[in-house]
Design a protein around this nucleic acid. Sequence first.
DNA 1: TTATTTATTTACCAATCAGTACATAAATAA
DNA 2: TTATTTATGTACTGATTGGTAAATAAATAA
Lengths: 203, 203
Amino acid sequence: MTNSEIKKSRGRPSKFDPETSLNIAMQLFWAHGYEGTSIAELTNAMGINKPSLYAAFGSKEELFEKALQQYISGPIAFISAALDEPTAYRVVEKLLVESAYFLTAPDTPHGCMVNTGSLSCGKETATIKETLAQCRQRFETALTARLQRAQAEGDLPAQADPATLAKYIATLHQGMSVQAASGTSREALLAMAKLVLDNWPPC
Amino acid sequence: MTNSEIKKSRGRPSKFDPETSLNIAMQLFWAHGYEGTSIAELTNAMGINKPSLYAAFGSKEELFEKALQQYISGPIAFISAALDEPTAYRVVEKLLVESAYFLTAPDTPHGCMVNTGSLSCGKETATIKETLAQCRQRFETALTARLQRAQAEGDLPAQADPATLAKYIATLHQGMSVQAASGTSREALLAMAKLVLDNWPPC
DNA sequence: TTATTTATTTACCAATCAGTACATAAATAA
DNA sequence: TTATTTATGTACTGATTGGTAAATAAATAA
């Protein structure tokens, strides 16, 4: 049904594009975190009124979750894509080097929505904090599996511990997000990434 | 004047100890960050009313700054103390291993007030974010100087770059704070610290 | 006792928070 | 035209935010 998107809707036409609005929400949450972004700021940036936002996205939490999905499948798609690299070294290289570029990109907020979007927060926002922690854990688990495969393929020494190596890389990545959010330069992050890569694998 | 603290004050006596209250504030800010801790929560935990808090500490920002000083000179005094260790290895060892224990201590919030107290926030809280970023930068700068000294003392290879090494350790430390705030176990952090130390210095 | 000083309690402030009720405007269907 | 559907703009809710004014309670000084 190619004409399914041309079919005329019944009532008053929407004056905004939900996908565009979702991207705006992603930018704001990315820059200021969950608690640091208010509904008023969101609707102002989107150019719509609050009832439209709630009709389209349900609640602030739901909007954040959708913006987070957008973020994961868009700006940081390279993270999960890195796991497809052919060797452990290439995986880690892509993760660290592309992150160094990404975290200091001039047109986007410095830092990572997953790592710094909600670390400390009030008790009523614990759900969001949990969601982001799960995101980080999922990545670390996937990286562990990838390094186990590398070990099985003889791509990583037998005495290496994939879980500890994965935690090492994940920890570095999270630290890089904090660094970027504090204004560290791209060059400094790249130099540090090179240092880590020149000593891969550490075991 | 040993009797200076016994001299009787003129008006109605204070019913709370400001130092105790400051420690309570430190615990709350440590656990939930600046924005995640409200004045109402602070006064409830202290057992005092708001005017008493404002009379004693000025404002929420001033209270946070004082709690931060308390935190730096108390719970994480080991951080600056680590720089006094005799060798670069011992410095890094103390930093990473003691941090692994500290960040996962059962009686205190998991995580570090300096690293996760305010990473992303609303525009009006940018001052606090700046203050914490400066704290982190001061530490990294001091560590760089310490590693330069180590290099001068022949304690670090000539081709090593102290600034990059310091950023590497600082980044790992910040990442460990994120990990701890997400619930990573002490054992996992210690295993990672060992991995890093077994490969020191990376150059 | 009386005056002064200080800290307390209670009550309040304006602003903002997330979220919603309601009337209206703009489209299609009959 | 008339009915129905959907999204809009305005105005509002109750709760909470950080911060304060004003009256009172408890101490010392005179």
